[in-house]
Design a protein around this nucleic acid. Structure first.
Lengths: 283, 283
DNA sequence: GGCGACGATACCGTCCGGGTATCGATCCGG
DNA sequence: CCGGATCGATACCCGGACGGTATCGTCGCC
């Protein structure tokens, strides 16, 4: 199977419309129809049920959609990592580490300092981004390592090492009645009048339906909490980032959050291995 | 990047010889040279240092070799899984489970029975193979789930659930002086006169140098032990497979072995999920 | 210094991927 | 019930990319 065929199929499977898919791919519709037919013939499988009005995925088709996306990601990753390897041979950027903007600044600083002190350390570029984006960057080979937070981030398909576990706190506007409590339970804060929990985007960038404000990152969220429009359940370490308008109370029954360092398997890079080793030795 | 280019590059990178690589690919040498040049131009990276006498991988080249192999595996996997999905829609084979021939028959039987009793269970085909082969089958999409043994098998890039941990025993010919002991340590059995530990093949099928007989599977190994030509350190559960000529003694300081069930990430199959859930509920 | 091995280059034919035009089927409005 | 619109499939044509053969340039080696 050629990646071209895969790209074509994925486009059609996502659009469920040959015309739109062809436009997205920048080709005409007839060659696309032909390519899909050829692919089906070669695989000996019907991938799409099509009438002249509708296109639907078959069982085999949805398997190929999922697997094909992963395969295309792997090919893209190979390309990006090769380019990056060529550049870093010619000079600068050694490693790209991606972390959520809300990640513990303390842990990150400690890690970078400790690694920089290692013999043979290479320059580390830090990319901060919203949640869910990290996974994509790592999968596509635009980053070498990521700091992820289980159970919120999926570590599926990556190698990981645990760096530490912490409980969670609820972040509230200063002066909220609950802030006098030594601790609370989840039941105390779900459905708090006027302070809904926020909605985070799904991996595809859309928001699940329901109440609560839509947020993209932690700074936005804290802003909303300070404005009295939301409350937030976050790892304890976020307390270091709270200012006077905000208060935090431990939530006893919230799932604890594990910070992990994650990297793509097949990574043969000594730099990644060194960084991971440094990270695991931190505590 | 097209998979054709990747396949070409991987062939050259493995052979380090354009002529041989071309023969392996079934094409002539000039088109291969051209294809590699094109790839290098498109990537903007030198992948191979070549003189008219030698070919060597650059840094970027070895990155592309590792990443490219993984990407090609992913593409092959997509193809195989799609074919299998199309077949299973048309009838039989539901899941392929791959286990080492030496795996605990007891656990395997329990798992298969329990899963078969689940509502909506599909037929499970069991493939037994030597160690290291499982990883390949799973990665290439020829199998859906595997029973692996940490730390011997690499679970890199797979999702896993632990099924249980057990200690190890040393398997000796019946009547050997050590068999009267209640337990031993590793130091007692390394360098045992006339009873070396065997050598297992590396993932590429070759054997590491050193003393000790070469073995491919557990049955071979037990045969050798019974013949008094080797001793073996194995998980406790192998005791169920020992006959009169063999004896087992616990090894206190051998690393304990964890049996895990592993499956490829992106697996959206309900059958795999059911089987895994069944497995984790076993104990 | 000449021979042999090997990768690069030159040149050519063919097949395949992509384009335009059109068909056939289905849905929808009147 | 009919005509237009929409959408995927088919027919046909063209250009470029891929593969093959012949040959060159270079390097190592006897």
């Amino acid at each position: 199977m050629e990646t071209r065929e895969l790209r074509y199929f994925v486009a059609v499977a996502e659009e469920l419309h040959f015309g739109r898919a062809a436009r997205r791919l920048g080709i005409a519709q007839p060659p696309l129809s032909r390519a899909i037919q050829q692919l089906e013939r070669r695989l000996g499988a019907v991938l799409l049920d099509r009438t002249s009005r509708t296109v639907a995925l078959t069982e085999a088709g949805s398997v190929l959609l999922a697997e094909g996306r992963a395969a295309l990601d792997a090919v893209d990753a190979a390309e990006h990592r090769t380019r990056r390897a060529a550049l870093s041979a010619a000079g600068r950027p050694g490693l790209v580490l991606v972390a959520k903007a809300s990640a513990s600044r303390e842990l990150l600083a400690k890690l970078l300092d400790a690694y920089a002190a290692e013999p043979g350390a290479v320059p580390v570029e830090v990319t901060l981004c919203g949640p869910a984006e990290q996974e994509r960057l790592l999968r596509e080979g635009r980053a070498d390592v990521a700091l992820l937070h289980r159970p919120y981030d999926s570590t599926t398909g990556f190698d990981t090492e645990e760096l530490g576990t912490e409980g969670q706190v609820v972040v509230l506007p200063a002066g909220h009645p609950l802030t006098v409590r030594a601790h609370v339970h989840m039941a105390d804060i779900t459905g708090l009048p006027g302070l809904p929990l926020p909605r985070w985007p799904d991996p595809d960038g859309t928001y699940p339906p329901g109440p609560g404000p839509q947020v993209r990152d932690h700074a936005q969220l804290l802003q909303l909490v300070a404005l009295g429009r939301a409350c937030a359940v976050s790892p304890e370490s976020c307390r270091a980032q709270l200012h006077g308008d905000l208060a935090a109370v431990p939530v006893l029954d919230a799932p604890s959050v594990t910070t992990v360092i994650a990297w793509p398997p097949h990574s043969r890079s000594r730099a990644v291995a060194d960084l991971v080793r440094t990270a695991t030795r931190l505590q």
